[in-house]
Amino acid sequence: MRSRLEPALPIVGAATILLLWQFLVPALGVPRFIIPTPVAVVLDLVREFPLIVSNTVPTAIESISGFLLGNIVAVAIAMIFVSSRLLKQTYFPVVLFFNTIPILALAPVIVLIFGLGIVPKIIVAAVICFFPTLVNMIRGLESPTENELELMRVLSASKLEIFRDLRLPRSIPFLFSALRIAAQGSVVGAIVGEWIGSNKGLGALIIESTFNYHAERLYAAVIVSALLAIVFFNVVGVVERRLLRYQSPAS
């Protein structure tokens, strides 16, 4: 089966499922206000394009801001924890505890504290990004091998130099596997934030379409949310590949 057709197989897979959906679901008598056909969704997406775009923009802004905020704070705290055992031992368990609170339970609290503007959405997105990045970054910064640390010590490297020339570059692959999770999580966070209190954004559109049985628009909003997450994921992937070019055996 190793042929040039192979990359096309997932497309065949998606196409068969879409075709089944298009013809089987109406044939089974499922009403279109519950599951509309793919063609109807796409037509709605085209027809309501300006509405969708105007709701995608705020969600994108919240996701990106939350992504930046959550990850920057996580990286900073990881650096502090790695350079101070005492602080890590004191506060890491607290962070672990906070992480066990489901984000859906925490989101209303955040809205309560920060009001109805853009800020609570950014914070919910940031909270989702924060934890995986913190954990991975700590692991990455602590990943240098015994030999690598001994090499630095033989060279009389300072703590700062060991950080700059060993710990930080060692942590980059760990950081990026967290950032790929965060890229998708930030969209989830922004949408959850919008559910709780907003009249714009994809989250608001989803809630409103659901209550109005506007199924085509609901599905269109869901698809655009997914696209947004895919775009973020790929942007992170592109940056990662540029930074980690050294890992590929071919020049």
Partner: peptide, 17 residues
């Protein structure tokens, strides 16, 4: 160090310590 080229690896002692 895998993220450093051959030249950069050899030059490491010039950059630390």
């Amino acid at each position: 160090l895998p993220w450093r080229t051959v030249r950069e690896n050899i030059a490491l002692p010039l950059q630390v310590g």
